[in-house]
Design a protein around this nucleic acid. Structure first.
Length: 848
RNA sequence: GCGAAAGUGGCGGAAUUGGCAGACGCGCCAGACUUAGGAUCUGGUACCGAAAGGUGUGGGGGUUCGAGUCCCCCCUUUCGCACCA
């Protein structure tokens, strides 16, 4: 053993040991209970950044903890290796995307090895390899068989900068999730997956993970699915047999409807205006709205002013029989509900604003229920039109001016009016969702080809399973024009129809890369299977994932897709549960100061505030870098990078190293006997050791990794204070030091595994931590305090302390406090009103 | 605009059910050892005060013997959603 701590030497030694002994390879044959720890698989951009390091350090800490506790821990890694940057490299620099990707993977794998992350490398996977994406295609075909994958022409989100379609999830807020460019609407024919079929389950099953996923993620998912209860109501168009169906959550306000408003894209507009003199005007308006939306009105920061036009057509309110005008307006969305609404200005903010602008009537039909207005409640014919409303009244209340329904309260009216509509055949109660089907076609090369063939005779023909994978060609040209590069490869495009053998063409789009990541952690269970995506029996042994760790940027993308995918896999019998991930941790970002400013921003090349993990490893060692990122902040918080912080981590490791170096000879020479008495000299150290074990264990279960490191430092400080001489220490002292050092080293392993392995060996154990080490057990007796220092307050202010045994009674404590010299002096001349005694905690003397 | 979360030393952050505020680390100060120190070790470090003592968890109020923690109002920050009928 060296006298001094040389991280690079130790780290290399143990990385080799782990590799040679295949230390982290696991098998299903292992009888121990399983634990599946998973970090989000990275995109192989070429270099790890500190965000990755933090992610993997957290996952690795957990993996080590569970291993030392005796679990059979699956801790795999792979590559989300399809995607835009590889294609950009191909366009800009003419490199082959496959070569570019493989080189990046090789480099990043090296970085992970240098960090010493304990992955089972035998299970490594990469999405761009045919043996993986074959199964993306297989899943697509399964969905196609069941009608869950379908093609339709529709307005889709188009990123002009990247030249491809995006899903709704990827264009949240009207901007591209990757490059931030404003998203346009384009009319294209695209493949969609029916996520809407699972909308209800995606909301309902949240209760299964409500306690173990972060609230903010569940909230966003719930909002994204956007479940809304209401009713469909048909408004007949006057003098025609046509109907306009609207969706409303407030059927109780229907007597206040003063118009029906259609979105500009509503399909009925054409039909309704066939003979209308206003046709020209309305169509011009609708076109204007559509084009404004096409250039991304939704990406604009400010609210767009409401605009509309009266079509001159009348619709009949099925409840009141009243005829009201039909308008077309820019504030009604075709994507939601039915693309048409009944406008109730008195009880909806948007309708109110619209009505004011165009001087449409505002008719109040809901009154607040209050004591002052009790007379109104008892007088259903009450009509208060005299007072102009300053705002819409959007709360529930009591119905007025609503025919026979007046006098009902909103909650009841909503139910009974929907029932009435159904009985009369002009509507029904309904649930709508905001979530849309997942558009998966991408006009790109570097993805899994959509396994579909178009035949002039047979139409849309799925590629037979036996012909999978549909492989990417090697000779595509990358022009960056926005056309799928596959379309320019005749050898790829031209094929024969699997049904009739006639000439046919392949689909030239590839699938969204989020398809790859929707099921990848099932593949880790059975990564080399070439006859199935995975063997359900094997997957059953590992899944669901026990702990998933990643950034929260995927809250409504990856994390909703993978829940959808799992439900589909359940429905085709591959898995037997509803939710793929038991527990989710969303780690905070790693930020650094932007030079010349006071801003802390996520590290990035463009801001020039990046920190290279390799440089950190070279300067301080992987162990210190990892210890620092876990110590510096709670895992879910933002982590501000401070070079001095990592120096502190090295200092700590160096001190621990030196401590072991000073003791290792004595500890290996003096046999570790059991049954050694605790002495007055060792009691305090032994207590600290066992208290620390208890605290660290419970903090691990709560994922409070930063306070664990603090606790280990406290234990070390206690060891320093113990100050026994390694040359002449008594058997009792040696025993206590050994106990403390062994516990410290074992508990340090999840944070800084290389030095822990080295020190464990120096403490006289062979074969490595996983062979000879076990997570230490806290002895509750030893952890007990044998004397308590009880604070004594007078009128709530701390004035003194008294010493007491843990077994002290309430009366004894009261007496001790009142007899304390300082307290006596303070209560002298005052009346003691009462004395609060909290057993084992505190005494408060209340005086007057 | 709507919704949610959070405000604790110079900094990152600790603090069972309301019960000693500031653990641990960084930084800073002093000292030791050193040819030297951006190494190492020791001690100190919330604020005011020479001290006794007093004041302190964004601001204001409340509940309580006792509030960082619970309740109400306000301010600030961060995040999410932004015409979802």
């Amino acid at each position: 053993m060296d006298e001094k701590y040389f991280p690079e030497k130790i780290e290399k030694k143990w990385q080799q040991h782990w590799d040679q002994t295949k230390a982290f390879q696991v098998t299903e044959a292992d009888p121990r209970p399983k634990y599946y720890a998973l970090e989000m698989l990275p995109y192989p951009s070429g270099f790890l950044h500190m965000g990755h390091v933090r992610n993997y350090a957290i996952g690795d800490a957990l993996s080590w903890y569970k291993r030392l506790q005796g679990f059979n821990v699956l801790h795999p890694i792979g590559w989300d290796s399809f995607g835009q940057p590889a294609e950009q490299a191909a366009i800009k620099r003419g490199v082959n995307p496959r070569d570019w990707t493989e080189e990046n993977i090789a480099h990043m794998r090296g970085q992970m090895l240098r960090l010493g992350i304990s992955y089972d490398w035998s299970r490594e996977i990469a999405a761009h390899r045919p043996e993986y994406y074959k199964w993306d295609q297989w899943f697509f075909l399964k969905m196609f068989e069941r009608g869950l994958a379908y093609k339709k022409k529709s307005p889709v989100n188009w990123c002009p900068k990247e030249g491809t379609v995006l899903s709704n999830e990827q264009s949240s807020g009207g901007v591209c999730w990757r490059c931030g460019a404003a998203v346009e609407k384009r009319e294209l024919e695209q493949w969609f997956l029916r996520t809407t079929n699972y909308a209800e389950q995606l909301v309902a099953d949240i209760k299964q993970i409500a306690d173990t996923w972060p609230d903010k993620v569940l909230k966003r998912q719930s909002d994204w699915v956007g479940r809304s209860e209401g009713a469909f109501i048909d408004f007949a168009v006057k003098d025609t047999d046509k109907k306009i169906r609207v969706f409303t959550t407030r059927i109780d306000t229907i007597y206040g409807a003063t118009s029906v408003v259609l979105s500009a894209e509503h399909p009925l507009i054409d039909e309704l205006l066939v003979d209308s003199p206003l046709k020209e005007q309305v169509m011009t308006f609708a076109e204007k709205v559509k084009s404004a939306k096409a250039i991304s009105a939704r990406a604009a920061e400010e609210e767009v002013e409401k605009e509309g036009i009266n079509t001159g057509v009348l619709a009949i309110n099925p409840f009141s029989g009243e005829s009201i005008p039909v308008w077309v307006a820019n504030y009604v969305l075709i994507e939601y509900g039915t693309g048409a609404v009944m406008s109730v200005p008195a009880h909806d903010e948007r309708d109110f604003e619209f009505a004011q602008k165009y001087s449409l009537p505002i008719r109040r039909v809901i009154e607040r229920i209050s004591h002052e207005q009790e007379s109104i409640a008892h007088d259903p014919t009450h009509e208060d039109q005299s007072t102009a409303m300053p705002h819409a009244f959007t709360e529930y209340g009591i119905l007025v001016n609503s025919g026979n329904w007046s006098g009902l309260i909103s909650e009841n009216a909503i139910t009974t009016m929907a029932e009435h509509a159904k009985a009369k055949g002009f509507g029904e109660a309904a649930v709508t969702y905001r979530i849309r089907d997942w558009g998966v076609s991408r006009q790109r090369f570097w993805g899994a080809p959509v396994p579909i063939i178009y035949c002039a005779k047979c139409g849309v023909v799925p590629v037979p399973e036996a012909d999978l994978p549909v492989k990417l060609p090697d000779n595509a040209e990358f022009t960056g024009t926005g056309e799928s590069p596959l379309a320019g490869v005749p050898e790829f495009v031209n094929t024969t129809c699997p049904k009739c053998d006639g000439p046919a063409r392949r689909d030239t789009d590839t699938m969204d890369t989020f398809v790859d990541s929707s099921w990848y952690f099932f593949r880790y269970c059975d990564p080399r299977n070439d006859s199935a995506a995975f063997d359900p029996e094997i997957a059953k042994q590992w899944t669901p994932v026990d702990q998933y760790i990643g950034g929260d940027s995927h809250a409504v993308m990856h994390l909703i897709y993978t829940r959808f995918w799992t439900k589909f896999m359940r429905d085709i019998g591959l898995v037997s549960f509803d939710e793929p991930v038991k527990r989710l941790l969303t780690q905070g970002m790693v930020t650094n100061r932007v030079e010349g400013t006071d801003d802390w921003k996520a590290m990035s090349k463009s801001l020039g505030n990046g920190v290279d993990p390799d440089e950190m490893i070279a300067a301080f060692g992987a162990d210190a870098a990892r210890l620092f990122v876990l110590f510096a902040a709670p895992v879910e918080n933002e982590l501000r990078w401070l070079e001095s912080g990592i120096e502190g981590a090295v200092r700590f490791l160096r001190r621990v190293y030196t401590m072991v170096w000073r003791w290792h000879e004595r500890l290996t020479n003096v046999a570790n006997e059991n049954g050694i008495e605790t002495t007055a000299a060792t009691r305090s150290l032994r207590r600290k050791t066992h208290q620390t074990i208890a605290k660290v264990t419970s903090d691990f279960d709560a994922l409070h990794l930063n306070t664990i490191v603090a606790a280990l430092m406290e234990l070390f400080n206690e060891l320093t204070d113990f100050n026994a001489d390694p040359v002449s220490a008594s058997a009792e002292d040696t025993f206590a030091v050994r106990e403390a050092l062994e516990a410290l080293v074992l508990m340090l392993a999840p944070f800084s595994p290389h030095i822990a392995e080295e020190l464990w060996e120096q403490l006289g154990h062979s074969g490595g931590l996983l062979k000879s080490g076990r997570w230490p057990q806290a002895d509750a007796e030893l952890a007990k305090q044998d004397e308590l220092e009880i604070p004594v307050q007078v009128n709530g202010k701390l004035r003194s302390r008294v010493l007491a045994l843990p077994s002290v009674t309430e009366d004894e404590l009261r007496t001790a406090a009142l007899n304390d010299e300082k307290i006596k002096a303070l209560i002298d001349g005052h009346e003691v009103v009462k004395v609060i005694v909290v057993p084992q905690r505190l005494v408060n003397v209340v005086i007057r």
